[in-house]
Structure formats: structure tokens, C-alpha cells
Design a binder for these strands. Sequence first.
DNA 1: CGTGCCATTGATTCTAATCAATAAAAGTGG
DNA 2: CCACTTTTATTGATTAGAATCAATGGCACG
Lengths: 243, 243
Amino acid sequence: MSPVACAACPLRKRTIFTPFTAEEVVFMQKFKVGELSVDRGTTILMEGSNSPQLYTVLRGQGIRYKTLENGRRQVINFLFPGDFAGLQAGLMGEMKHSVEASSDMVLCVFDRGELWQMFRAQPGRAYDLTWISAVEEHFLGETIASLGQRDATQRVAWALLRMYERLSAVGLAVEGAVPLPFRQQDLADALGLSLVHTNKTLARLRELQLLNWRDGRLHIPARSELAKLALVDLEKPEIRPLM
Amino acid sequence: MSPVACAACPLRKRTIFTPFTAEEVVFMQKFKVGELSVDRGTTILMEGSNSPQLYTVLRGQGIRYKTLENGRRQVINFLFPGDFAGLQAGLMGEMKHSVEASSDMVLCVFDRGELWQMFRAQPGRAYDLTWISAVEEHFLGETIASLGQRDATQRVAWALLRMYERLSAVGLAVEGAVPLPFRQQDLADALGLSLVHTNKTLARLRELQLLNWRDGRLHIPARSELAKLALVDLEKPEIRPLM
DNA sequence: CGTGCCATTGATTCTAATCAATAAAAGTGG
DNA sequence: CCACTTTTATTGATTAGAATCAATGGCACG
């Protein structure tokens, strides 16, 4: 498929993203050096590597994870359309986690070498990038709070509700369901739970009619019920910039 | 005490921080609008508030935490000399966590209104700010991995070792010990453990002669032993900018 | 000298991990 | 297209690590 022009970017229309000026669209079009299409299962960025590229997810979903000395894997978070990846390598010289595609994906590719130029010539875009980073920090803080303070049921409810809301915000909800290509093992590794316990917890939430995740689709019949259980405030979604 | 001139900043000499150019020192001196001295126990930033100020910790230590719907508290991380605070309010309009002083503290104060000016006039400093944010993201990712994949003993060892290294890097180690003003409850809330279990875990690590935290001082007799237990790679410290 | 905060220790309970086995799908190669 | 392997999901039985409950001691402070 031919690359999506920034002027016609389907994500930019979504209200969770802050608007671009015409000038910014022009700049981003220059900044964008191409598109990367990968199959499900592909490693896009590798922990410890020093990728020359930065990415914005255009289509598909993935995971960010890191591996500990003892071999255990922690999924840091999930990657959805509109998410930015590769900043760590861009600024700190190497990735501190890996990124893998959980479905087929398409990513906008930016040249890391141009990053400094962006800071000089486009302070507005630089500001937005910092903002993106601050939003990311915020979400990681939420995750820490979940792992530290929520029990298994609340954690699973919290994670799936969050993903449901995020995917809805980029227009992927169809009849109360969103596509969710992850494995139960991925969720377990994200929440610090064993696979077995995650499975049993999902079964319980399904019994309670609070959610139904099967065949790669997540159905949530009653958002607010699930939100109550998950101790989530169904606030208006966090508005943030898109890169 | 009279304010510290940026030119004479004691932190800037530390090798964990990237060097400033002479021009940057001049700019920071203008950007710095004053100093804030607070007593132990003071709330510096409040979750949900929209502070007009940004801070860099000059002296003392604190905690960042958030409170869940169920009243439980999660300590997101600890604040040490050189750490930057308030960016979330600066960019997203409100703080997503609170910041409290765990010892008496002195902070450099910057005017949030000047932030945008910094992005326009000092792309290098803007770049550094994004870098700081990326480093923060990295550490939060590490924390997530700890909460998700390490058991109680490893978590306590990991956290205390990390704090020891960080405090050493800013010159606070004296005879194998660093000042650590936190309560056991703070550590418990940071690691997602109960106070009782944290206390018992500390006692066990003390028996093993791996660490000794008492009277506000943390002694670590054999760093590498503790690192092995904590599954920590005693790499060279992460170099990062100072704001 | 009482009150409150923080640290410590023992006893008990329970959530989630581990172990084990099977079922259901999805690829793979001849 | 069908045997065969691999991956992913499900369920039951047992164990273990950490939470909760409960009580005490040491200190600082008004």
C-alpha cells in the first residue's frame, strides 16, 4: 500500500490528539521518511540497540517489554495507533526495552538525525514531543499504582478497560468490541500475574458479564460497572499530541 | 541561606550530569526565579493541582505518590538532589501525583511561564528537558519490572541499592552509608508490600549483612553481593541532564 | 507524663504461584 | 489434504509468599 500523506492522516482527526497547524503538517511530512509494515511477531526495536529510527504507530498493536536477569519478561505497556516509539534510543543512545508487533503493523518512520533539527526549527513540535513523554510518564505511574495497589481482579479489569478506552478513542470500537491481538501471557506479563491466575481471573470476569475477550476481540458490555470494579475514574480521555 | 548561583551549583559538578555550556549557565540563572526551602513533611506539589512552578531538587529528599480511589497510597518514586519536578503540570495542565518532602529540602524554582520561551530560545535546554523525561520513563519502566517480576526480598534489595547508588552519585555517601530519611511505610508503599512484610524483609537482609538501614542512614557493606540478590547489573550510572 | 508515630515480632489467613494435565487452534511439511 | 508439532487456552490440586490481625516497645514532643 502507498504511504499515507500526513495531510490525510486518519489519526490526526481523532479528538484525543491535539490539532496540527498547517505548517506542522508540512514539517511532519518532511520529517517522515517512510513507512514500515511488519508482520505479527516481528521485533521492531530491541533492548540495548541504538535504532536510527523513530516511529509512530499508524495501524496495528504491539508490546513494549524488557527481560530481567532471571529471564522473566515484564511487559511495560501496550502500543496502540498514535503511540510514539524509539525516543529512548534517540535521546539516551540505546533502547531500554524491546518493541514487538502483536498484530501486523504499519508505522510512520522518522529519521532520528532530524530530531535535533526539529528542536531548532520547530519548537512547537519539540514541545509536543516533551508533552508526549510526560503523558507516557503519567501512564507508567498509573501502571505502577496498579501493580502496587490493585489485586488480580482489579488489575485485569483496569488493564482491559484502559485498552478498550484507548482503542475506542482511535475509532476501533465496533458494536461494543475492540480488536485485541495479545495473548493471555502478554497480559499476565504486563500485570505481574501468572498465566494460570490471569486465565482464571478472566474467566471470572466473563462469568460476571463484565467483559468478554476471545478470538482477538474484547467486548465490554457495561463500561461503568467494570470501571467501578477496576477503581477507575472514567474521566474524559487524556488529550495529547500526536507525532 | 542565600540562593545558590547556577554558576556555583554544587550538583552540576557531578559526573552523572551532562555538562552545561557557559551560555546555558547564564540562561538557567535567568530561568531560576528563586529557591524554596521546606520542612520535612511539607507537600510541595499536589495531585490535581496546577502549579505555576517547576523545581529542581537542590538538597534533601522527597517522595512522589498518588492515592487510589480505595484510599491506598502508591509511592511512584523517590526524589533526590538533581531530580526535576512539576513538568506534568507544566505540560498537561495538572499534576498526576503529589510530591512531599521526606527531609528538609531546598529546591530551585523556575517559572512555568518561561518554559515555552525556553523551547523557542534554548533548543539545547529543551532537548535536555525531553531527555530528562525519557530518563524518567526509563526508571519508571524499571520499577514496573520490579513490581511485576521481583519477589519481596529482591524488591527491597533493588530499591535500596538503587537509592544508595543515586545518593552516592551526588556525593552523599560517607563511609559506606548514605542519608535516607524515609519511613518503612514509604518503602512499603513504593514496592507494593505491606509494612509488616517490608519490616521482616529488612530484618532478614540485615541478618544476612547485606544492608543496614537505621536511624535514617543506609549502610551497604557489599554492593556487589546485594546487586546479585537484587538481580541488578551494577552498570555505570545513567548519565543525564540537570535542569 | 501521657499521646502519637514508627519499628518490631508472632499468629493466622488467604491470594496468587506452581505443578500437572488436557483441550483447542494454528502452523508445517510430506 | 492429512498426520504432526507447536502454541495458546482452560481447569483442578497443592503450596508458598505475603497480607492481615494483634500486641508491644522505643522515642520524640507538647
